[in-house]
């Protein structure tokens, strides 16, 4: 993009973020583990495979219905490791705190990070705290990194989808993104929507014990399901077809999306996953996902199709067809 400054679009998780990674980061750090551009890196240490991932959390507001920045920071990294097929074990936590931040809020955040780590079954084993002058950061930013071993018989990745694969989605979409959005200043909605922030590693364990034919796991966070599916279609060089009627969206979330002109396919999730499974195992995997406490609304939303490499198609509610492109930039509310 022809701009000499970073725009908010560069952080949207869509095409523009992607170009930042490809143009600026990848040429410098280039190595085979990074260049896969998966949720985390897969490392080989002493003949054993490990998943290693990092993420930084800057969510505003820091407390929102259904969660807070601390819980999100734990689950986000846990999920990234789980999506690589890894069993998350150890996390680091780095905090950047703005001068003047209430200690009571910090306590609340740290406490919920502890509870989240316990729930996910991981330990925070190292950390760092920096304080910056007022205005140099917005309240609190948290980075977490994590590592976990990948069992020998597990081999998943965004490049491994093949025609025929069935696509399972673990529940309703767009809950997190819409919740955070409606809490922002200027948004005067009242609703009962809540973030879906949740650890997915236990769900992933259930998935792997139900089938060995899992090809792709992905948590559609920034950029939403639409962007994740595009990345998978592109890396696997295959076509994807999904069905609008089969994608679960809560009524209230749907309502807010319509009110703002947003497409829920591009809104962030923090406790959902997409699993690409061989058709013969789809039923088994679906019931395994549904057995998890965060997967009881799981459903099949589409399949990998022959031809159309790199493209994602959607059959609309009334039976038409349209393309689902990657998100371009930050979705801006449209009015007129």
């Amino acid at each position: 993009m022809k701009t000499d400054r970073i725009l908010l679009d560069h952080g949207s998780g869509g095409k523009i973020s992607h170009s930042l990674t490809l143009d600026i980061m990848l040429p410098v750090f280039d190595n085979p583990m990074l260049s896969k551009l998966n949720d985390g890196a897969i490392l080989n240490i002493g003949g054993k495979k490990f998943a290693f991932s990092t993420d930084t959390y800057v969510v505003d507001p820091i407390f929102f219905p259904g969660g807070n920045i601390g819980e999100l920071a734990i689950y986000g990294t846990v999920n990234d490791i789980a999506m690589c097929g890894g069993t998350p074990l150890y996390l680091s936590a780095g905090l950047v705190i703005e001068e003047g931040f209430p200690i009571s809020d910090l306590k609340k955040i740290i406490k919920s990070m502890g509870a989240a780590a316990a729930k996910a079954g991981v330990k925070v084993v190292t950390g760092d705290t920096k304080v910056v002058p007022k205005g140099a950061a917005d309240k609190i930013f948290i980075n977490t990194s994590g590592i976990g071993p990948i069992p020998d018989d597990i081999d998943v990745g965004c490049e491994k989808a093949v025609p025929g694969d069935i696509i399972i989605l673990s529940g309703t979409i767009a809950d997190h993104g819409i919740t955070v959005l409606t809490q922002r200043e200027g948004m005067t909605f009242t609703s009962s929507v809540k973030s879906d922030t949740a650890p997915l590693n236990h769900m992933v364990e259930k998935i792997f014990s139900s089938s060995k034919n899992i090809h792709v796991l992905r948590d559609p966070t920034r950029g939403g399901v639409g962007t994740s599916l595009n990345e998978i279609a592109e890396k696997s060089n295959c076509g994807i077809k999904i069905y609008e009627n089969k994608i679960p969206v809560k009524n209230e979330v749907k309502g807010i999306c319509e009110l703002l002109g947003f497409d829920p396919l591009y809104i962030a999730n923090e406790g959902k996953l997409l699993a690409f499974v061989s058709p013969e195992d789809a039923g088994k995997v679906l019931s395994a996902v549904r057995k998890d406490e965060f997967g009881n609304e799981a459903c099949i939303i589409g399949e990998v199709v022959p031809g159309h490499p790199g493209k994602v198609f959607l059959e609309t509610g009334i039976g038409g067809t349209r393309m689902v492109d990657m998100l371009t930039g930050e979705q801006l509310p449209r009015i007129c």
Partner: peptide
């Protein structure tokens, strides 16, 4: 109100 979402 639209389906439980309320605003002014």
């Amino acid at each position: 109100d639209v389906d439980g979402v309320q605003r002014q």
